[in-house]
């Protein structure tokens, strides 16, 4: 063990007696060779370590990129799967909307006819009164059916909304080709040109991306 303040490289020379120079020289030579060998080994190990570190860093970067790609691709795959399901459901929603609209119009017409017939001469007779009662019953049943359809429509819309689907706003809004598709124009002096006045087909978005453009009628004054 060397004492404090003594250079460890010179310990051998300090400890060795000056008289034994013939034995010291081969010892130093061996030590020198050993030091050089260790130095070379250290250099080689150091180079290998640097190379391994570089390989590791590249591997980590590649893995990180691959993970990011996998994450991106899986997010896209989830979006595409949701979008495909939503597209299928839009056909159901469209049909429900159409049947509800038809039923509403039909009920309005039936109501109008009943009001006309109430004022007529025929309903003074018992058979006609029975006919009128059947009519009223028919309207009532149809109203209940319409209510069921509307509830079904609301339920499907709730499912779509919980999946992140949003309807595109149209009526009274300015036309924006990023969200709306103009299918027709209409002259309207009371409205600003470019205002949407009717919606032919509902548009939908999912996670900020368009699933279906809203098809609209837009004000255009020549």
């Amino acid at each position: 063990m060397s004492s404090p303040g003594v250079d460890p490289l010179n310990v051998l020379e300090i400890d060795e007696p000056d008289t034994d120079t013939e034995q010291k020289t081969p010892g130093l030579e061996v030590l020198s060779q050993e030091v050089r060998r260790v130095g070379r080994e250290l250099f080689r190990v150091s180079r290998t370590s640097e190379r391994n570190q570089q390989i590791c860093e590249e591997a980590i970067a590649q893995l990180s990129n691959a993970l990011a790609q996998v994450s991106e691709h899986s997010a896209e795959a989830v979006f595409q799967a949701k979008a495909a399901l939503c597209q299928d459901l839009f056909a159901v929603v469209d049909s429900l909307e159409a049947s509800c609209d038809t039923a509403k119009n039909l009920l309005k017409q039936l109501d109008g006819k009943r009001a006309q017939l109430d004022r007529g001469f025929l309903f003074q007779f018992s058979k006609a009164r029975q006919l009128r009662a059947d009519w009223v019953e028919c309207v009532k049943v149809m109203s209940q059916w319409l209510e069921g359809q509307q509830l079904l429509y609301q339920r499907v819309m709730t499912v779509l909304q919980s999946a992140g689907v949003r309807s595109i706003e149209t009526l009274s809004r300015p036309f924006d080709p990023a969200f709306h598709r103009a299918v027709s124009t209409e002259p309207r002096r009371d409205l600003v040109a470019g205002t949407i006045v009717d919606e032919e087909l509902k548009g939908y978005m999912l996670d900020g991306r368009i699933l279906r453009f809203a098809e609209v009628v837009v004000v255009k004054n020549e």
């Binding site: 080709p177 990023a178 598709r181 103009a182 299918v183 124009t185 470019g194 453009f213 255009k220």
Partner: peptide
């Protein structure tokens, strides 16, 4: 577009009728 921006593809087609 109405504000003078160049638009292409589906967005441009959407305004064709108007």
């Amino acid at each position: 577009s109405e504000d003078g921006r160049i638009i292409v593809g589906q967005t441009a087609l959407n305004q064709f009728v108007l």
